[in-house]
Design a protein around this nucleic acid. Structure first.
Ligand SMILES: [Zn+2]
Ligand SMILES: [Zn+2]
Ligand SMILES: [Zn+2]
Ligand SMILES: [Zn+2]
Lengths: 135, 135
DNA sequence: AGTCGTGATGAGAACGGTTGTCAACTCGAC
DNA sequence: GTCGAGTTGACAACCGTTCTCATCACGACT
């Protein structure tokens, strides 16, 4: 009864390969609509809904990082490391650097506990303007 | 020429007083729509657009703190201190504690500079579940 | 290679929070 | 009281995202 064979297979399709490829081409955070447009001009078009679904799936499985841009839209990026980390993001072009808040994790947990809060989660992101986007 | 008389007067209206009053009644972060509903049931109704505009104005002038909830909607709160600070927020009821990341400010600036980023801004928020909302 | 079941796709509608529009209104200075 | 500029509110428009559902196509098994 403990069947280990995947009951829900995840299929590899042209669309998913295309989205993954587009994400792999850049180290910038970009939105679903940006990716959709990029794929369209590139030649292998993918439906917008599919882009959203694919990104959501990849985010759920940890294949991409998601963060909410300052204007409210979700931005996606395939990061180098898979462990928990934070980002320093250019608010103009989306270029990002992976950083780790040294003591942030422990600090968040202790502050939360000190005030009787449980299931502490934290958001730590840095925004700036990178050298290329200056001037 | 250095005219100090306010050329653009900010008027006190029934609506603005109502919004400010509703915000002063609670220490929880709440959305524009929540406030709009609260005002309606309370008796002094205010148009939804006006609630949005008033909150935006108060946020711009620093009278209220804004933060984006995990579901994407803006949440507002009249905080005790006016200096820069961060929050530990209950993701269920919105109740919040004002906290200050001790070294966060300096850390953010140094990390940004180290990577050639300028105009560094940072987002540091803690989410959890408060004692009242547990169980 | 052929079959088949189920996951995947895409065009378009729907959704939810927020902002824009504009004629009517009202605060407050005079 | 007068008057003008700031303010209001009902409603439409916006925009990113999700839902719907008929059609398509992986891929496991012959
Ligand atoms: Zn990352
Ligand atoms: Zn940049
Ligand atoms: Zn605050
Ligand atoms: Zn709570």
């Amino acid at each position: 009864m403990n069947d280990t064979t995947p009951r829900t297979a995840v299929r590899m399709t042209r669309q998913r390969a295309a989205v993954a490829g587009a994400l792999g081409d850049t180290d910038e955070f970009c939105s679903a609509q940006q990716l959709h447009e990029r794929l369209r001009t590139r030649g292998d078009a993918v439906g917008l809904a599919t882009v959203y679904r694919t990104l959501q799936t990849m985010a759920d499985s940890g294949d991409v990082d998601v963060l909410r841009g300052e204007d409210g839209e979700n931005l996606y990026r395939r990061c180098e490391r898979s462990e928990h980390h934070h980002h320093l993001v250019c608010r103009v072009c989306g270029r990002a650097v992976e950083i780790d808040g040294p003591s942030v994790e422990a600090w968040a947990a202790s502050v939360g506990a000190a005030h009787g809060f449980a299931d502490i989660d934290h958001t730590v992101e840095l925004w700036g303007t990178c050298v290329q986007c200056r001037r």
